[in-house]
Amino acid sequence: MSFLLTCPNCGRREVEEFSFRGQYRPRPAHVESFEVRANYVFFETDHEGKRLERWYHSSGCRRWFLVERDNNADPRSFWFSDLDRP
């Protein structure tokens, strides 16, 4: 059943209001090999602990944001612009 996720704009909402779109990682440059770019598209890393994910608030403000989700603890939501990019 549904848990609650925090949208940076709208606050805590039922998770059904959101669309989950997978892991967020920096995209490999187009000069990388085909294998590297294909792996980026098809394989996500699945591990215990923290992972950055893309979520979309489809039934609310309709904005994309990031969630740092530790599958052992509570998630932390924030805007893309607040992420420190490498």
Binding site: S19, R21, R54, Y56, S58, R62, R63, W64, F80
Partner: peptide, 11 residues
């Protein structure tokens, strides 16, 4: 498409 275009713009 809507969410996709929003994503392209954001990303």
């Amino acid at each position: 498409m809507d969410s996709l275009v929003e994503w392209w713009i954001t990303d």
